[in-house]
């Protein structure tokens, strides 16, 4: 089980040249790879897309096997993915899903971080977060509008719809939280966000979601 491979740089194919047998299998292939694009994923070398340890595939062997299987999958077959590992291809029909995915599911009494982490260490599980393991994470924009809608509604309820001259205090600039500074500005407010990981701050500066960074409270 290879969880970290610093030599891997994954980018989805673009254009109209298919590498799978149809667009219905090319699409999940490109979206799996897009989840691991260096500008999309938080720690692509570890297959981590966002949200702590939300992964796109269980390990690099599983990733390679999913890619290989999607490339050969027929239009009446369905690939089953179990916590980030491709486990079966079954004959279904053309209107059926091409991929069915179950990630991180545990019987309720065992559904704790302690038990999950034990399984995860043994290579028996993967944390799929929401759109990491289901291959439809599109970067922080995916959360910007939800966050924008929330901040606008906060402004409407508490400041008569006008957030000019107001500021938001928050923390966390990861895959989810990184949307906050831009959403706040779009909603008309300013934002001060606290973040401990320099790489996350740099990523948000690079993608234009953040204007500037300060090393301590007084300087900001």
């Amino acid at each position: 089980m290879t969880r970290i491979d610093n030599s891997r740089v994954i980018r989805a194919a673009t254009g109209t040249q298919l590498t799978a047998k149809s667009w219905l299998t090319e699409a999940p292939l490109r979206m799996l790879m897009n989840n691991l694009h260096p500008d999309v994923a938080e720690r692509p070398e570890e297959l981590v897309v966002y949200g702590g340890i939300g992964r796109a595939a269980r390990d690099w062997e599983s990733f390679d096997k999913i890619v290989e299987t999607l490339r050969r999958l027929e239009d009446d077959e369905t690939l089953l993915v179990q916590s980030g590992k491709p486990v079966g291809v079954f004959r279904t029909h053309t209107d059926a899903p091409r991929v069915l995915i179950a990630n991180s599911n545990l019987v309720p009494r065992w559904a704790t971080w302690e038990h999950f982490n034990e399984l995860d260490r043994k290579g028996l599980a993967m944390y799929g977060q929401m759109t990491a393991g289901s291959w439809i994470y599109i970067g922080a924009q995916g959360i910007v509008q939800g966050t924008y809608e929330t901040f606008v509604e906060m402004g409407r309820q508490h400041y008569a719809g006008d957030l000019s001259g107001k500021w938001l205090l928050t923390a966390g600039l990861g895959g989810m939280g990184g949307a906050q500074p831009l959403a706040a500005v779009m909603a008309g407010a300013s934002c001060l966000a606290i973040e401990c990981q320099p790489s996350r701050i740099e990523m948000r500066l690079r993608t234009g979601y953040l204007d500037r960074c300060a090393a301590s409270g007084p300087t900001c």
Partner: peptide
């Protein structure tokens, strides 16, 4: 007839606290 469908546990709020489903469909 979605193109891929997913059923997850623990997203957002962590293990034991959520169950949720995803859907993606291709317009070809």
């Amino acid at each position: 007839g979605a193109t891929w469908v997913s059923l997850h546990h623990g997203g957002g709020v962590g293990m034991g606290f959520s169950q949720h489903a995803g859907m993606v469909i291709v317009a070809d």
